[in-house]
Nucleic acid binder design. Structure first.
Lengths: 305, 305
DNA sequence: AAATGTTGATTGGTATCCAATCTTGTGATT
DNA sequence: AATCACAAGATTGGATACCAATCAACATTT
């Protein structure tokens, strides 16, 4: 064992697989796929906070074994999107107001840091990309396309961070964004998009002029404005079973890598209209299918009022 | 069953378990414990990058089933400490130089953001705590206690982030610190501690005076100085089997005498010239003497955990 | 009616088995 | 002899069945 050449099974390759790992923290297949699908469903607000994610139920939905589901749930919990209680099961996370503020503070913090780095390092092409993005959102707002404006408003922050050219940071930021998206299931978003859009534009202006401190203050107030529009005391009621909520993502083959951002189902056989590309939870009331075998029993978990 | 209040299982509890979750995102027991142990072993450099983490082998070491080990490995991979290749297995991550720089950049970014927030919000007690910590490290350096100085130098960053009072951010930062610790298995740390200590002190000074931009620049150059001292082309050879590496962390039995971290003789093989001199692992000060119980019970205070 | 067992359901975990894939070693071919 | 191809072994990913612990709801008793 003291031989340096064959001391112990040591996997070594120069830089090939390292690169591909840097691109994506990929690993297995199914548990990751299922975790991605559940993440998608959560940030699409089809699975609302507090909703129980039973292992058996999910394993039947996805047609996999319970163990694969559990591995996926572990991922979700590590991402802060689910919460696992010992011997009780997994639930979609229901962050407290305190945690919501921490998430937004972390987001503020990250974007302030990105701003600081960009103010030093970003080249003209980067500034142009930011301005272009702001312009696109402005046009969407002008056209009255609220949905698109909303998506672009989110995307601005992602583009902003991507310009740091740091995949590690992008992953951290993406995780925070997912958690903020989860928060929207619990809050009433009621703020002025034009104000936020102006903020984006002004941040770019300030940064390009080197007025870093002011830009960072604006980022802070920007996020504070978002949080201020939030009210956490809203009660959310799951209106669908997980099976129904996840149905749009299971087109035939579970092999499909990742469902696109807008789960548009052109040929959805079952009625279930109105599920396309919804960002907010205004799902139609669904008459409970009497076919669900255990729906009568497992459904009733205390939800007062 | 059409009652809206009992629509579907919705887990709800006011705020109790939320708090405990924020404090501790732990879930099961064994897979988390094993993931923690592996993490500990990796950041202690007992498991070096590239080392294979076979499921069967680990399951025998920990006396658990393979599935539990796999769940732990998934956690490690999500944390960036391991790398899973399909049908090939898990290995301790071997970050590329590119990724190393990204990790340090992310760390810089986070700490710059923290600095920005602290410069606005931190009270006198917070500044005092920072100064006290710097002073402790200064005394350690003066006393020639390099090991303690190193630990304190690490800890400064953790304390710094903790003052933001944001658990989400703390967790992100802790993860980044773990990954930087992993990097030390691949690099030769060869920098001047006094300089870094001065940096800490000056950052506190600048921040308290409101000179945010300068403080952030200093944070940047601070981390760049650390990275500059790094050389990634070193080859690391596992000198222990995972069983040997993990033995000190297993319950009860601690044959402390037989497992020092760097048992490899500095008998630098004269062959090999100097090109890719795979000098033996000159572990910096972290190599504390494996006093029996101290190493058994995870000394979570020593390094950010 | 309140307190207290009892039972069912769900999770955490183990063992065993199987399929797919990767590695390795041997053998045939040029 | 060197190289290529193929087969055997090993390892991972996953499925299934099973057991123990725990929690929740129900039923019983005082």
């Amino acid at each position: 064992m003291s031989r340096p050449d064959k001391a112990y099974p040591c996997h070594e390759e120069p830089a090939d697989h390292v690169v591909e790992m840097a691109e994506n923290r990929v690993l297995s297949s199914r548990s990751q796929t299922i975790a991605d699908t559940l993440t998608r469903a959560i940030i699409d607000h089809r699975l609302v906070p507090g909703c129980k994610l039973g292992e058996r139920e999910l394993s039947e939905i996805f047609n996999v074994s319970r163990i694969v589901v559990r591995q996926a749930l572990i991922r979700l919990a590590d991402d802060g999107l689910a919460q696992i209680e010992r011997n009780r099961g997994a639930f979609v996370a229901k962050p407290s107001m305190q945690e919501a503020m921490e998430i937004y503070d972390a987001l503020t913090l990250v974007e302030q840091g990105v701003a600081a780095q960009l103010s030093d390092r970003l080249g003209p092409a980067g500034w142009a990309e930011l301005r272009h993005h702001v312009e696109r959102q402005r046009q969407a707002v002008a056209a009255g396309n609220h949905a698109l404006a909303d998506v672009l408003g989110q995307e601005f922050h992602t583009v902003f961070v991507r310009l740091s050219r740091n995949k590690v940071m992008q992953e951290i930021h993406a995780q925070l964004v997912r958690r903020t998206t989860l928060l929207r299931s619990l809050i009433t978003a009621d703020f002025d998009y034009c104000n936020l859009l102006d903020d984006h534009s002004r941040v770019v202006d300030l940064l390009e002029k080197g007025r870093l401190k002011q830009a960072m203050d604006l980022i802070d107030t920007h996020h504070r404005a978002v949080v201020r529009g939030y009210i956490m005391d809203r009660e959310v009621f799951p209106e669908m079973t997980p099976a129904e909520a996840l149905a749009p993502y299971l087109d035939g083959k579970t092999d499909g890598a990742t469902v696109p951002v807008a789960p548009r189902k052109p040929a959805n056989p079952s009625g279930n209209g109105g599920s396309t590309a919804h960002v907010h939870v205004h799902l139609p009331k669904i008459n409970r299918a009497p076919t669900s075998r255990a729906s009568t029993k497992k459904t009733n978990r205390g939800l007062p009022s």
